[in-house]
Amino acid sequence: MRFRTFFASLALPLAATVSLTSVAAQAAGKTLTVYTYESFIAEWGPGPLVKEAFEKECDCTLNWVGVEDGVALLNRVKLEGDSAEAGVVLGLDTNLVAEAKATGLFEPHDIDTAAVDVPGGFSDDTFVPFDYGYFAVVYDTQTIDTPPASLKELVEGDPAQKIVIEDPRTSTPGLGLLLWMKTVYGDGAADAWEKLNDRILTVTPGWSEAYGLFTNGEAPMVLSYTTSPAYHMVAEDSDRYQAASFSEGHYMQIEVAGILKTAPEKDLAREFMAFMTSPAFQDAIPTHNWMLPAAAIDMELPEAFDKLVVPETSLLFPPEDVADNRKAWIDEWIAAMSR
């Protein structure tokens, strides 16, 4: 390798990367930057549709910035402090709300939330729900004929029939199952975990790993969402994977958005939050984010959504309880699972 080429090879790829990836300056006018999680803005996600619909009525430019997931979203806000360029943060879930408020970086939304309709009713002066979902055990109908009908049956069922779960230390679904067990078993949760441990094939760092193992046939059950079967029915035309309905009820995940104190265009941010509760935004949720809409929609839902499990009881801890007890409950989980 010649020396000049050697140096050129340092400079060129860098320059090429910059020029290939740099985006042309946006057209003049107001700009709203929204932080969200990356699957929201994937080319198949709701992001592109929402951008198009909002820009049509706001005479502005909507910029998405996507990070890994809801937890990473809160961390990014914390890392940036008061120098964030975003106006709106979209994609925190209720378990993160108390912590997000404690940062003091968000301000009251001041919008009319009458359109919002989530089971159990969630109202907050800072955060507005935009979708919700229920955690559920999704199973493979080719292996399992009679799925567990309750969390109790899951805990006490045949240990040879395995389930893959996510780690509450590293992922939101993992934390969801932890809270689910806590709402149902209370102080007996540790014993229930110890029992369930025999059925757990493995504990993965995130949802993707768990679901990948499940669809690869490693285990006939996985912790996912009630809406997961809708994806397979709509996009793959397959009803092989179904969610089990649990008699104790299902733990909820409500996803919310809030306005940052440092938002450069506050009115625009508020306009977006209001838009979020309108059908133009909500229509993108069911078949693009594969969650349930948090307000009225103006579209025909695919038939598959009629077949989904609709829990009789929605379980949810108040955000403050989660914030106060999360560490202790995770410690309890580790101890029970390591016995």
Binding site: D167, R169, T170, N197, I200, L201, T202, V203, T204, P205, E209, L213, W333, I334, M337, S338
Partner: peptide, 10 residues
């Protein structure tokens, strides 16, 4: 990642 996925638990 490998340790968590293949390790089977905490």
């Amino acid at each position: 990642t490998l340790v968590l996925i293949l390790g089977g638990g905490p």
